[in-house]
Amino acid sequence: MARMATNRRVAISTVGAWLAGFLIFFPILWMVLTSFKTELEAFAIPPSFLFFHWTTENYATVQERSDYIHHALNSIIIAGGSTLIALLIAIPAAWSMAFSPTKRTKDVLLWMLSTKMMPPVGVLVPIYLIWRDFGLLDSLTGLVIILCLGNLPIVIWMLFTYFKEIPKDILEAARMDGATIGRELIYVLTPMAIPGLASTLLLNLILAWNEAFWTLNLSTLNAAPLTVFIASYSSPEGLFWAKLSAASTLAIAPILVLGWFSQRQLVRGLTFGAVK
């Protein structure tokens, strides 16, 4: 009797969860399907769900029309560059606060967090003017700098929460054995910190890849990453849905895969350790 009730419960919740999951995922699925249709079929009513003439011509058109590869490379440089530089600055800082905390460490951490609370639009005007005067508008350097600064607090926080979980006794044991700080870093700390470093790297790549305030406002063509490339499809030009879908699929596919890998760290990173 009890067993039957459990089976029924599993069946009901399974059906419910799959239905909800499918509904939430549907817009993405629909976009991918549309990207393989011809423009006429993409616009057709009633829509065809699977039985249409599958074609990959939209993907070729997207590349010809607006040089997808150029913008994809920009996205890789901007997201990768800003994340790596942020890590280089954040690792020593987080290491220092996790292993040699002082009375003020907590205040410093909270202050760093508060810089992330500043709405970007509040400093849009000065940043735009400074960027203009230094010739940084529509340059990769300019976007790497701004995204690096914008994500630095999150990087430091994530690393700090990971570093704090490394048992201190191990470091002390290494120190007793006469290890210098350099050796301590390379042989003891690094291997234990790699999982935390990897998830910090992943989450920040995702955030930088999808950042769409500074990229839209500070770049137009040369340095434009995929967010801006997609925005160029906002003015309709004849039948363009299949092309829009193909461009969108290309823009989100790499980061969706990375995102699925890092989903378990997502909660921790985005709540600054407040929910684990």
Partner: peptide
Amino acid sequence: IAPFFVMPTVSALV
């Protein structure tokens, strides 16, 4: 979780 990883310009236009 997937929609969270879709860039805002893509989700809005789609």
